[in-house]
Design a protein around this nucleic acid. Structure first.
Length: 416
RNA sequence: GUGGAUGUAGCUCAGAUGGUUAGAGCGCCAGGUUGUGGCCCUGGAGGCCGGGGGUUCAAGUCCCCUCAUUCACCCCA
């Protein structure tokens, strides 16, 4: 039989669907309170948008994009990330001033799948555009922090670094190259290439040989110009002030070229090698890379599949009242459905048995599927306009007029 | 893209050196007498052994290819 494409996933287990909905609504709630409004950008964009912002030499652009040509010969790409799109949209709409956006969107990268890494994955992300104030960095990181806490991820720690701006980064790159050149022979093949291509990336190589060289490598912080230094110091100070646990990590660099100054990540051990659940940073020159007016910004992206893995299987959804309406015979199914619809209209969660099975089997099923109550609807009940209700947790049973059911059950007293 | 592991019932897995009707546990369905769950007992359904090709008298078992999953690398959310 035909299967779903590699690296994609279906969500059809009701429990899992509920987890997704709960997570998404948590994100929306956190954003609404902090004044972020939702932005939705096209699923595909001009290939050039990503090529120019992420960087021609980045892995994303070199080998991970889903690129195709449409009937009109346009080169298009399924978005591998959303920041470039959001900046593009801001500029295209000729907005001005500070804007705060969030998105919940699917992203596509042609990669080899493994735990916490899919070809289509979903990210919740926030962007603050139009200001380079350190306060924006702090608020943005705060949004990710608040969201993760509310989602229930414990023991959070933000790692961050500053990788400078166009004024000071060139000097740092040169310093790195100068340091590594004499050791070139000891580097892994990837790092030999990086030495010319993208020296900053030398710092997050995990090969033993390269790892050893890192300790003596020059640190970006020592090369920051005074403006970047001041900016970073202020970001750190603000994080302290708002109570966000963080640690300075001078080996942290990001894979996308558009980052400037602040870069950060939040990781979680449950994810194995894909430990970063959230990553982001500042991108003050991105807009110009796509031919726009200067527009500073900071943003983060947070992988929802990864977060769901980190959160584990825990059922954090309180069990609400759910009534399973059982019937004593097939003849009662019609009247039972009518009753179910009436009860639903008054706000109750009610399910009726669709297959023909014995009362016993209906009870068994209600129990298995975690219903809180079973209503038995038979001739006696119908004649008296009542329903026999059994509380499955308490094991108690009683009969009530159907008109009073909604109130009795909704006010929740588990024991009737 | 590179390297390793895996793929047998809905799920977790057994099936030594190839040999007759492919098994278990859990789950599912039905019963254990009158309109009632969780425990227990009995019975039942359910498997092109991921797919294709090959070797052989004979393949779930051996070989090749392919698809998928998984772990690591690369990289990233």
């Amino acid at each position: 039989m035909l299967q779903r494409p590699r690296g994609t996933a279906d969500v059809l287990d009701p429990k899992e669907a509920e987890r997704w909905q709960w997570l998404e609504s948590t994100a929306r709630r956190v954003c609404a309170r902090a004044g972020f409004s939702e932005v939705r950008t096209p699923t595909f964009e001009a290939t050039e948008l990503f090529a120019r912002t992420s960087g021609e030499s980045s892995d994303v652009v070199q080998k991970e994009m889903y690129t195709f040509q449409d009937q009109g010969g346009r080169a298009l790409t399924l978005r591998p990330e959303s920041t470039a799109s959001v900046v593009r949209a801001y500029q295209e709409a000729k907005l001005s001033g500070v804007h705060k956006f969030y998105y919940l969107q699917a992203h596509f990268r042609y990669e080899r799948p493994q735990k916490g890494r899919l070809r289509e994955h979903h990210q919740f992300g926030c962007e603050i555009l139009g200001t380079d104030a350190p306060l924006a960095d702090a608020e943005l990181i705060g949004a990710a922090w608040t969201f993760l806490s509310e989602a229930g991820l414990g023991d959070l720690m933000v790692s961050l670094n500053s990788i400078g701006d166009p004024n000071c980064r060139p000097a740092y790159r040169q310093a790195l190259q100068a340091y590594y050149r004499p050791h070139q022979a000891e580097l892994c093949t990837d790092c030999q290439r990086r030495l010319e291509d993208n020296p900053l990336r030398l710092l997050d190589c995990k090969q033993d040989g390269c790892q050893a060289l890192k300790t003596g490598a020059p640190k970006s912080r020592q090369y920051l110009c005074s403006a970047c230094q001041e900016h970073f110091r202020e970001v750190l100070r603000l994080l302290d002030q708002v109570g966000i646990r963080h640690q300075f990590d001078d080996l942290l660099v990001r894979g996308l070229d558009y980052y400037t100054r602040t870069v950060f990540a939040i990781s979680h051990a449950a994810l194995g090698a894909q430990s970063d659940v959230c990553g982001g940073g500042r991108y003050d020159q991105l807009s110009e890379a796509i031919g726009g007016e200067p527009l500073p910004g900071v943003g983060f992206g947070l992988g929802l599949e990864r977060l769901l893995i980190s959160l584990g299987e825990s059922d954090r959804v309180a069990q609400p009242v759910r009534l399973y309406l059982a019937v004593t015979s097939e003849q009662m199914q019609g009247p039972a459905l009518a009753l179910a619809m009436e009860l639903r209209r008054s706000g109750l969660t009610v399910e009726v048995e669709l297959a023909r099975r014995s009362l016993k089997a209906q009870f068994r099923r209600a129990d298995k599927e975690g219903f809180s109550h079973v209503g038995v609807f038979g001739p006696d009940e119908m004649a008296s306009g009542a329903l026999t209700v059994r509380d499955l947790l308490a094991g108690k049973e009683s009969r009530h007029p159907t008109t009073e059911l909604a109130n009795i059950l909704r006010t929740g007293a588990p024991a009737l």
